[in-house]
Amino acid sequence: MSPRLASLITAALAAACSPGPAPAAQPEPPPPGYQTAIFAGGCFWTEEKAFDGLPGVRSAVSGFVGGARPRPTYEQVVRGGTGYREAVLLTFDPTVISYRSLVDRYWRTIDPTDPTGQVCDQGPSYVTAVYATEAQTAAAEASRKAAQAALGAKGAGFVTPVYPAMRFWPAGPEHQDFARRHPGRYEAYRVGCGRSARLRALWGAAAVG
């Protein structure tokens, strides 16, 4: 990352990325008839925004997945060594939007050819992955194959995997609904990071974010 970009990102994140209060012990269970989906897609602010308000999506929660330490904090995760990745937990109504539709959208919110993070956000906590339940795995794998085919030659380096679902831990409240609560700071981050430009170059008009 260039010094100028680092300065932009630091200014955008300064207030929000402090450790903050301890995260919730666990997310609320989905209401009867609803299901959940977990996507690690780099910065969880961006993934949350990409799904929040989508018809059929009841909630999008920023948090962490992939590690073993209980109740991880943001500070612990970004320091490294925990195995956790930033992720979003979606609670959705499958009678309105299917899991497959959510995974199809997910690919268009990330650069699945980046093995080490997402654009300006680099490091283990920003590596992408789909975390699917046993019942979701076939749809996730089929969606992955279709997304790779849609990229054509650009999909040759498609590296984002589908993993078995793991325990999700919510991030602190200062990270929830960040784009909605702090639109100016989020926009500074989005533009400074260059993620939207990268997604458009990769996905064209299908890019989300």
Results as ranks from 00 to 15, higher is better:
E134P: 02
P27S: 11
A149G: 01
L102H: 03
L13A: 13
A201M: 04
R144I: 00
Q118W: 12
D177W: 02
A165P: 02
A149C: 05
S18W: 11
V130G: 06
R198I: 00
P29A: 15
G152M: 10
G172A: 07
G80K: 08
Q26Y: 09
S98N: 04
G81D: 10
D104Y: 07
P23G: 14
L202T: 01
G152S: 10
A50D: 12
A6W: 11
G209K: 01
T128A: 15
G172S: 09
P170S: 03
W107L: 08
P112N: 09
T82R: 06
A25P: 12
T91R: 09
Y84G: 07
E174S: 08
A171C: 00
Y74A: 02
T128Y: 02
M166L: 12
A12V: 04
Y126M: 08
T113D: 11
T133R: 13
Y106N: 02
A11E: 15
W107M: 09
T133A: 12
G33Y: 14
D52L: 13
V78G: 04
G172N: 10
E134M: 03
R4S: 15
T160C: 11
T137I: 00
P31H: 08
P27K: 03
A15Y: 13
A16Y: 11
G184S: 01
P55L: 08
F51I: 00
R71M: 12
G42K: 02
Y163K: 14
R167N: 09
P170D: 01
A165H: 04
S101F: 05
A207N: 04
C193I: 06
S143M: 03
A60Q: 05
